[in-house]
Design a protein around this nucleic acid. Structure first.
Length: 991
RNA sequence: GCGCGCGUGGCGGAAUGGUAGACGCGCUAGCUUCAGGUGCUAGUGAGCGCAAGCUCGUGGGGGUUCAACUCCCCCCGCGCGCACCA
């Protein structure tokens, strides 16, 4: 029998010892009681979810703490999954004891690919398998004693939930972004109802793009729809999208890896021109960055969002290009307009429109390297485009640094110098960033420099290092560009013959000032303007899957889209003969998506009265991505059954509104949101975007969804292989005794044969899975919870080591023994007052543990509770007044044993709402402290002194110590630093 | 390449300028036990020493300070994110 097992085994032990069997009994008992009594119900201000047993919600401070929406996988949980759930449960229980009204609930994110695939494999409807998975997950989590308000649970697949997901879509669809709108919060720019835009078109306050002024009413429905589509926040895009034939669906940029493959399934992704739903998240790019300052998130996640959004400030500049078809404008985007004088050529992306005007013949004298061996520019460009098109987006980056390109035969006029710049096409310029065209400044940009070097293009430096930098332009000339912003502008004035000339290189002007100067000049000349660019692309929002939310959109026979009215929601999924996606050869870029929803004509074709009498329509057959449901679930916990509103506004204000408590501040939102860092730019960006739209449209009162975000680490695990490299069951591997000592690697055996340890994830194929159920059987839920919380800081990843669990079990056993006589089962505490030492330890522990709990450091809280418990163990009899606060402080972490002991100590009520202990100040100011005496920073003596000892007195005592005298060698000290009553630091005289 | 984070006993980790290694695992010895295990008591960074004690010690090197795991600079190693974004 393994040691670990023996601790928990009831065999041959005192009759009333705390062991796995006892734990099992009391855990099930308390879980039942909590359920029956609604112990963890959160009280709404009004309506059905006010909680009759508690004080009215309005009199309590709300505290909203949730985990990231779990996905009910068919595989069940292992011990790594619930780490975050246990952490939020500890926080929830702690806040309840502080007298707060705690919102803690869990729903299920149940649409999505794995559920659909699992259903296809098992031949069952995804709803059936998904609901089974949810039931299993609920069981596993319930057995852990998590303090959720179960009345508030739901799944994204519930028709009532889906109704509101579709409702939000319809509000986003029916809105546009007015960049000039003055918001009530003082900001500028807001989502507004599309009706306001139509009013502006009708009244002539805004021009109708591509149409005559004041002609709105005379335009056809299709024409109007096309115009509005360009403004709607949810719109039909007709641009290249990520198509993964192997998955049979299109994907958002965020779901495509840097290698140009699908995050799920790792299939190749191709750019394909398709009509798809998009969300205009780019309209919110600036606010999504700016408002990061108002929320309490890890810097790392903020940085990842900032990088993903990629806001850059620069200028667009118009270049004229002479073609056989007349003069064409080529707009370039640059972040360094100050280097306009250094532009010696131009590059357009292979997809750029300008390439339609490539001349038929090379001019005389074009270098061979520019031609790429082609007879005509048209052949060269055609072939270059063909190759570029065949590369996936990230193949282009693959050869990292080595730039290819071809001369187009075209020239652009530098608007500031009048110089003729040869235009190249090269795939290092991307069509979907900026304008797809750049002015190349080899003197100031590494990529342009590389390109210029390869094709023999001139290099002009327009910036030189600052005089006091110790750097000089000669260090760069002929070998590198000078890319720094810290520099003085040079070589940047035009001769007087050029119209509207401007000089940037005067008065030692520096780069940042020159940028402003040149932007002002460009705007004055109407040849450019200051602009902002984003790396962020609009969010591709449709998928060709069965298991997702249908769009509340129908089309008439002319394919004009119509939004279904709220009264027609939800649009439920139809039964289809086959709900599996149509997948293709993963490499088949010529294939096109086919939506499973299109397989049921009865569902697709409908006759509806949308206000102008019954007409025939066909439904949109796409479904929404998995992210849709998880974009807004947190607010539904507040009001899960509301059929009139997304969430009742008054309840929203109470739970999530700005300033709803001291934690959330002005941004409002969830007080604590715990989850893995993997959602940093997916879920968390999408949810913030939706939230801001709902905020702009007045449906929610807080500007951010999640005020504080905490990323928990991952639980990792050892896996073992045998000599052939096959995985062997980790549970059966033993460590060779003494092998891991003196710095040597430990050795392992599996059934007597050598085994080799590796470190990584927990997984079936690695044969190292430990499930929560294993833990309940062997130790009980409390030991499991305690162990996970004591392993180390919550934010760090660490290895699961089953061997160590026994320590947590022993702590609970000792606590139990301090209260219960193991042989008789009687309560054994004394009613006598604790002695002075015990009071000191107790009150110091209360003070310290409170701080640890506030800062989410359960690991150090636990170690301090153990110290207190170990102290109580040394006493002849354990005073009630000392052990009761200990039980209360342990209860958030190990709630079942705490409830049981609390109950046996004579309390009838659950301790869940019992006030958290408060330290008595008078025992914190201890009567004696240890003063440390240092000589040259090394501890040489200790003194027991009064805490309010006079510093001079302390100094005298310290200097009198023999160990100090010895080191002073009879000379007076050079310096003595006294920080009474803790430290005396003596500096001896120099020899 | 750029950005961020991390590096402490045999192991998980504690200490954010003031007694390095709290607490736990493991290990050693003793008690309990027919025995193993459990439980209990004590010890456990390394080196020297019978001991008192001394010396060394937080990836490496340098600096600031009376005092550095902690702050600053350089280097090494590991992890994460971004990566032709003009």
């Amino acid at each position: 029998m393994s040691q670990a097992k023996a601790v928990a085994d009831s065999h041959d032990q005192p009759a009333f010892r705390y062991n796995a069997a006892t734990a099992q009994k009391i855990e099930l008992k308390w879980q039942k009681r909590w359920d029956e009594e609604g112990t963890f119900w959160a009280a709404n201000v009004d309506g059905d979810l006010t909680d009759g047993k508690q004080e009215h919600a309005g009199s309590k401070t709300p505290y909203f703490v949730i985990d990231m929406f779990p996905y009910p996988s068919g595989k069940g949980l292992h011990v790594g999954h619930p780490l975050g759930y246990i952490a939020t449960d500890v926080v929830s229980r702690y806040h309840r004891m502080k007298g707060e009204n705690v919102m803690h609930a869990l729903g299920f994110d149940a649409f999505g690919l794995p559920a659909e695939q699992f259903a296809v494999q098992t031949g069952q409807h995804p709803r059936v398998t998904t609901e089974q998975n949810i039931a299993n997950m609920r069981r596993q989590l319930h057995r852990m004693g998590l303090s959720f308000d179960d009345r508030r649970s739901f799944a994204t697949i519930d028709p009532e939930y889906m109704r509101w997901t579709q409702w939000i879509f319809s509000k986003i669809y029916d809105a546009w972004y007015d960049p000039e709108y003055q918001r009530a919060d003082g900001g500028v720019g807001s989502a507004r109802p599309i009706s306001e835009l139509i009013t502006k078109f009708k009244s002539g306050k805004m021009d109708i793009p591509g149409h005559q002024e004041g002609t709105w009413d005379s335009m056809s429905a299709a024409e109007q729809a096309d115009v509005l589509n360009e403004y709607r926040l949810a719109y039909i895009s007709k641009s290249p999208v990520n198509w993964a034939p192997g998955l049979g669906t299109v994907l958002a940029n965020e779901e495509v890896t840097a290698e140009g493959r699908s995050e799920r399934g790792n299939f190749p992704v191709f750019q394909k021109e398709l009509k798809q739903w998009s969300m205009r998240i780019t309209a919110y790019g600036h606010r999504l960055i700016e408002d990061l300052d108002t929320i309490d998130w890890p810097d790392k996640v903020k940085m990842m969002q900032k990088n993903w959004i990629g806001e850059s400030h620069g200028a667009s500049v118009d270049f004229e290009v002479k073609t056989t078809d007349g003069i064409k404008d080529m707009e370039v985007y640059t972040t360094r307009p100050d280097t306009l004088f250094g532009a010696t050529f131009s590059v357009v992306s292979p997809e750029h429109d300008l390439l339609a005007y490539v001349p038929a013949q090379w001019e005389a004298g074009i270098p061979e390297s520019w031609k790429g061996g082609f007879e005509t520019p048209r052949d060269a460009v055609k072939e270059y485009r063909r190759i570029a098109e065949s590369k996936t987006a990230k193949d282009r980056v693959a050869d990292n640094g080595e730039k290819t390109g071809i001369f187009t035969g075209l020239y652009a006029t530098n608007p500031i110098t009048g110089a003729q710049l040869p235009i190249f096409t090269a795939d290092y310029v991307l069509m979907d960033y900026g304008t797809g065209a750049i002015m190349a400044v080899p003197g100031g940009d590494q990529r342009d420099y590389d390109f210029a070097t390869k094709y023999g293009l001139p290099v002009i430096y327009t910036v030189k290092p600052l005089p006091d930098s110790g750097d000089d332009l000669s260090n760069y000339e002929g070998s590198a560009p000078f890319v720094s912003h810290d520099g003085i502008v040079i070589n940047s004035s035009v001769d007087s013959t050029h119209v509207g000339g401007v000089a940037l290189d005067i008065n030692g002007q520096r780069v940042d000032d020159a940028v402003q100067t040149v932007i002002a000049w460009l705007e004055e000349q109407h040849i450019g303007k200051g602009t902002v660019s984003y790396r962020l692309r609009d969010w591709l929002f449709s998928r060709q899957r069965y298991w997702g939310e249908p769009f509340p959109i129908v089309y008439d026979d002319n394919d004009v889209p119509y939004l279904l009215p709220d009264s027609m929601l939800p649009v439920n999924l139809p039964e289809v003969p086959d709900y599996s996606p149509r997948t293709f050869d993963p490499e088949d870029s010529e294939s096109s998506p086919e939506a499973p929803l299109s397989r049921n004509d009865d569902w697709v074709y409908v006759t509806l009265d949308l206000g102008d009498g019954p007409r025939r329509y066909h439904r949109d057959t796409n479904t929404m991505p998995n992210w849709a449901g998880s974009c807004w679930y947190y607010m539904r916990y507040i009001d899960p059954k509301n059929s009139k509103n997304l969430v009742d506004p008054a309840e929203y204000d109470y739970w999530l509104g700005p300033d709803h408590n001291k934690t959330a501040g002005k941004s409002g939102g969830v007080d604590l949101y715990v989850g893995g860092v993997e959602h940093a730019v997916l879920h968390l960006l999408y949810a913030r975007f939706w939230h801001k739209v709902l905020y702009d449209l007045g449906y929610v009162s807080s500007s951010e969804p999640f005020h504080k975000l905490f990323n928990q680490g991952y639980i990792q695990a050892y896996a073992y292989t045998d000599e052939r490299g096959q995985y062997v069951p980790a549970a059966e591997v033993e460590e060779v005794p003494g092998s891991g000592e003196n710095g040597k690697e430990p050795e392992f055996t599996w059934h007597g044969k050598p085994a080799f340890r590796e470190f990584g994830k927990m997984g079936k194929s690695l044969k190292n899975i430990v499930t929560p159920d294993d833990m309940y059987d062997t130790y009980g839920a409390d030991t499991f919870r305690l162990y996970e919380m004591s392993m180390g800081p919550l934010s760090e990843s660490r290895p699961w080591n089953i061997r160590n669990v026994v320590g947590s079990m022993r702590f609970l056993q000792r606590l139990w023994r301090n209260v219960i006589n193991e042989d008789t089962g009687e309560v054994s505490v004394t009613e006598n007052s604790p002695d002075g030492k015990t009071l000191k330890v107790l009150n110091r522990t209360i003070a310290e543990v409170t701080v640890e709990m506030e800062n989410m450091r359960p690991n150090t809280a636990i170690s301090k509770l153990i110290v207190l418990n170990n102290h109580l163990t040394t006493l002849d009899s354990v005073p009630r007044a000392a052990v009761e606060p200990l039980i209360l402080m342990l209860s958030p972490i190990a709630p079942h044993i705490a409830e049981e002991l609390w109950n046996r100590l004579g309390h009838d009520e659950s301790l869940a709402h019992t006030p958290w202990p408060v330290a008595d100040e008078k025992y914190l100011g201890v009567e004696n402290v240890t003063a440390v005496v240092q000589v040259k920073g090394k501890v040489r003596g200790k003194l027991e002194v009064s805490p309010d000892i006079d510093p001079e007195e302390l100094e005298k005592l310290a200097l009198a110590l023999p160990a100090v005298q010895d080191r002073l060698g009879g000379k007076p000290p050079r310096k003595v630093i006294v920080k009474a009553p803790k430290i005396v630091s003596v500096v001896p005289a120099v020899k």
